[in-house]
Amino acid sequence: MTTDSVPKPAAFQLDPTQLQRDYGSPRIVFGLIMTGVSILFMVLALIPLGLVLYYVTIEGGSKLSWDLFVALPPPPLVEGGGFGNALVGTIIMVAIGAAISVPVGVMAAIYLAEFGTGKIADWVRFANKVLSGVPSIIVGVFAYAVLVVTFRTYSAWAGGFAMAILMLPTIIASTDEALKLVPQEVRQASVGIGANDYQTVLRVVLPAAVPAIVTGVTLAVARAAGETAPLIFTALFTQFWPNWSNWLLEPTASLSVMVYNFAIVPFENQQEMAFAGSFVLVFFVLLTSVAARLATARRVY
C-alpha cells in the first residue's frame, strides 16, 4: 500500500476558533434570500386556490337555494330556475362511467398485482400511464366518433363512455397499489388451506384492499364529475330533464357544461347559476378529497 504522506498546507486551513455566524457572508445572505424566495413561492402557489375558493363561495355559495337543485335552467333574462337536470345528468353519466370503468379497472389491476408477471404487466402499466396523460378533449373526440356518429345522436351514453376512459387509469393505478399493500402472508394462508387463486383474490385479497380501492374510485369520480371537455360534444347540453323513455339517447345536461355555457353568456341570472354550479362542483371535490385523505389514514393492513 502506498500512502503518500503529504503534509496539509496552511492555505486552506481556517482558524479553528472562528465559528461565529457572519451575517455578511455571501453564503449566508444567499441562503436567507433563497429561503425567502421559497416561502414566497409557497404563498404564491396557494393564492390562486384561496382566491378561487373565495370567489366561488361568495358568488356561488350565496345563491344556493332549494330551487336550484330541483328546477330547470331558466331561459335568458328570466329570473329563478335551477340546474336540477344538470345535476341528474352529471350523476347519470358519472354512474355510467363508473359502471364501465370500475369492473374493468379492478379486474385489470387484479391481473397486474396478482397474476401479471414480466413484460405484459410492464407494458400494461406503461400504457395505463400514457392513457392517463391523453387530453380529455381527445377522449371526447374519440367518444364522438365511436358513439355519437354511430347512433346519430348526442347521448348520456357517449358522455359516460368518455368518462369511463378518463376514470380508468386512476382506478387501475390506485387498485394496483392497494392490492400490492396486502401482505403476502395473507395470500399464502389462503392458498395453504386449499383455496383456488380466484377464491384467494375474491374472498381474501380484494376485501382487504376494499377501503383503499373505494378511496381511489371516489377520487376518480370526483375528478370525472368536474370534467367538461369530453362532454361538450358527446352529451352536449339541454334545457330539459333526462328522458328515460328514450333510453337516454338524446342530449343530456351536466353541471360542468352548464358552468361553461352560462359563463360565456351576458345574462346575469345564468352567470350566477354558473357560479352556483361551480360551488357545488368544488364543494364536492373538496369533500371527497378530505374524505379520501381521512380514509387512507386508517388502513386495514
Binding site: M42, A45, L46, P48, L49, L51, V52, Y55, V56, E59, A222, R223, A225, G226, E227, T228, A229, S256, V259, Y260, A263, I264, Q271, A274, F275, S278, L281, V282, V285, L286, S289, R293
Partner: peptide, 24 residues
C-alpha cells in the same frame, strides 16, 4: 396540510378556473 392544499389546486375542475378567469 400544505401538501394537501397544493393537491387541491389540481383537483379544482378546469371549468371552474375558466369561470374564475372570466369574471375575476
Amino acid at each position: 396540510i400544505l401538501v394537501f392544499l397544493v393537491e387541491l389546486l389540481a383537483a379544482v375542475p378546469s371549468v371552474v378556473y375558466g369561470l374564475w378567469g372570466i369574471f375575476v
